[in-house]
């Protein structure tokens, strides 16, 4: 019961902050900040999808960018080839979701044969295959140069798009929250904890891994499509390892295995990215902001291996424990 209470508290805070964020564009007009928030929401969806694999099922994937890229390219190509209308936006989303569902199904099947870092290496290679494919298939993708495209007027309005991504993020958050609290989600955690034991309880772990992989792939594809819309431009970088590393960094800094952690991680990373690049005027080193992320990453792994949320929960548990002890001391004393 205590666990559910803690979960509720997190969700309530999340909901309150989301409500504040809905009002935000109405009271404070700052185009830059609006764009940053939109980025945060998109990457929060992406990081949450990655957390299903890393945090809940215990699958380490270095190729999550491939689903992100599939979504981004589906959207961009549709917008470029057809009219920039809402109908095609939905069609592009469906195509992207469909394609990444198929790819993630195949990739998920491979977890049968490969475990841990071997699987990670394989996904890395597969994502790179997509990267090279996008580079070479110039007639469709225009390679590393990429292409710009027009989007429906409704989405051109920054506030509209901001609200859409925000609502989507909130929906994904609560859907995943329910998902991990469900009997299915509990089995995923069991697989992460002890695969062999889960199997001997009579759960067929391959199905679980494949379904988790498909859900993560679909969500990543949606995030990719939104990302493409936000930039109105696409190039091969959506398939690059950097995208996967972003998701990895966000989930680890926020707290692996907590949905809210992925959202917080996305916020921290995007904001610090923005802040660090704005410091370029002070010193040229800030142009290489990625160095700081490297340091941040090392520090997190060393001192907060469970991320921000994990560290907070541990602190709270400790406080409660001490309180309990005090009480029992009083009772005996």
């Amino acid at each position: 019961m205590r666990v559910s209470y803690e979960n509720k508290l997190g969700s309530i805070i999340f909901l309150m902050v989301s409500c504040l964020l809905i009002v935000f564009p109405l009271v404070y007009e700052d185009r830059n900040l609006l764009i940053i928030f939109t980025q945060i929401f998109i990457f929060a969806i992406f990081a949450m999808s990655y957390d299903i694999l890393l945090g809940f099922t215990g699958i380490i994937s270095f190729g999550h960018a491939m689903f992100f890229g599939i979504g981004a390219y589906s959207m961009s190509i549709f917008m470029k080839r057809f009219e920039p209308e809402m109908l095609y936006v939905f069609l592009a989303l469906i195509v992207g979701v469909f394609l990444s569902a198929i790819v993630s199904y195949v990739v998920g099947l491979l977890t049968l044969r490969l475990k841990t870092h071997y699987y990670a290496m394989l996904t890395l290679a597969l994502a790179n295959l997509f990267y090279v494919g996008a580079e070479k298939w110039r007639s469709l993708t225009e390679g590393a140069d990429g292409f710009t495209f027009r989007i429906p007027d409704f989405l051109r309005e920054r506030v509209n798009f901001y609200l859409i991504t925000l609502v989507l993020m909130v929906l994904v958050y609560f859907a995943l929250k329910l998902f991990i609290q469900s009997p299915f989600g509990k089995v995923l955690v069991a697989i992460k904890e002890n695969e062999q034991r889960t199997e001997s309880l009579g759960f067929n772990i391959l199905y679980y891994k494949i379904i988790a992989s498909i859900i993560a792939g679909i969500l990543a594809s949606i995030a990719g499509a939104l990302y493409a819309i936000s930039l109105r431009f696409v190039n091969t970088s959506v398939f690059s390892i950097d995208i996967t590393l972003d998701a990895l960094l966000m989930t680890i800094i926020g707290g692996v295995g907590t949905i809210i952690g992925a959202v917080i991680g996305s916020g921290v990373i995007e904001f610090s990215h923005y802040w660090l690049t704005s410091l370029v005027k002070l010193h040229w080193i800030f142009e290489r902001w990625i160095i700081f992320f490297g340091i941040l990453y090392i520090l997190t792994v060393m001192f907060f291996p469970k991320g921000i949320v994990g560290a907070l929960t541990a602190l709270k548990r400790k406080a409660r424990h001490e309180k309990k002890h005090d009480q029992s001391d009083k009772m005996t004393g």
Partner: peptide, 25 residues
Amino acid sequence: LTTLENVRLAVQAQKKIYFQMLKSV
């Protein structure tokens, strides 16, 4: 996982609830 959760998972397996993902435990 907690002791209760460990056993609960086994109960869940026994009840043959394998793929329910839209309902909280």
